[in-house]
Amino acid sequence: MKSRKLIALIADDDEFFRMALASILTSKLKFAEVVQAASLDEAVEKLSARSDISLALFDLAMPGIESPANLRAVRDCFKTLRVAVVSGSKSRRDVLTALEAGVHGYVPKGLGVTELAHALQLIVDGVIYVPPSIATLPSTAEERPAPPRDAVSPPKSALATLTPRQRGVLALLVEGKSNKAIARDLDLGEGTVKVHMAALFRSLGVSTRTAAAVAGGRLLQPEP
């Protein structure tokens, strides 16, 4: 039986690191193709445009990953996709927050080439990779997760966690437009709008379009 061609997506705003990681994926893990993106919005659009990507790697410092809701939305909308974080952060909170968002692994950028390739191979093989160093990472009061937001009246700071595309989607949602109309107005695929909508629901702490529109209307109101 012919083996399936492996295709990965690397979402990182560091072009040099993307190229280095792509080299590891193709030479060590035998990936046939590596798609690259420099922001979450670009990554979502590329994931929505094709169904043959099997592994997606995200850097927490990349534009758009301000909220774990975005990682969870990717997981929710691409059920068969293996999603992992490859990050320079050694924060215990970042590791646990990413894992709680449902990613299939957290790989530190500081690993050597051999260790990095091994960690990624485990993720491809279906293992949830957790860095062994997490056992020795400090757990400080400053790293405790923030308390849940009020879902009815999200603070204005919630707007800062949205990507530019998500803000555009939210503004049109507040106007009462459908996903199809939003996709047409923003020149996006409906699948891409669906992912952004899922992220918005999680960021705003709501579960319906009506509640999202109400919360969004409050967020987008100019300061008095």
Rank of each mutant, 00 (worst) to 15 (best):
L57N: 03
I65C: 15
L29Y: 05
F16M: 10
K90D: 15
R18A: 14
A98D: 10
F31W: 03
D76P: 00
A61R: 08
L47D: 07
Q36G: 07
A101G: 10
E15M: 04
I53D: 06
T97G: 12
S54Q: 13
M62P: 08
S27W: 01
A38Y: 00
A73T: 06
A56T: 03
S23T: 08
K30Q: 14
S39G: 08
D41W: 00
T97N: 12
V35E: 11
V74I: 15
E42Y: 00
N70T: 12
V95A: 11
V86L: 14
A8G: 14
L60P: 05
L29F: 07
L47S: 07
F31D: 12
L99R: 01
E66S: 13
A38P: 01
A73Y: 01
K79F: 05
Q36N: 12
N70K: 02
V83E: 06
S27A: 14
S51G: 09
A20N: 09
A43T: 01
Q36D: 12
S48Q: 01
L55C: 07
A69G: 15
L21K: 01
K46C: 05
S89P: 05
S48M: 04
L55H: 02
V85Y: 02
F16H: 11
A38G: 14
A37K: 02
V44F: 02
A22H: 00
D41M: 06
G64C: 09
L55T: 02
L81C: 10
L9K: 03
R75P: 08
S91N: 06
D14A: 15
F78G: 04
E33L: 09
L29C: 13
F17H: 07
L47N: 05
R92S: 10
T97C: 12
R93E: 10
S23Q: 11
V74S: 09
A84F: 01
F78L: 04
V95N: 03
V35W: 00
V86M: 11
A22V: 04
A101P: 05
S67E: 10
D14Y: 11
L9D: 09
S23K: 08
P68C: 09
L60I: 06
I10A: 15
G64F: 02
R50E: 12
E42R: 03
R72Y: 00
E66R: 11
L57E: 06
F78Y: 07
R50I: 06
V35C: 09
A20S: 14
K46Q: 13
A37V: 06
T97I: 10
P63T: 04
A84G: 09
E45N: 05
V34W: 07
D13S: 13
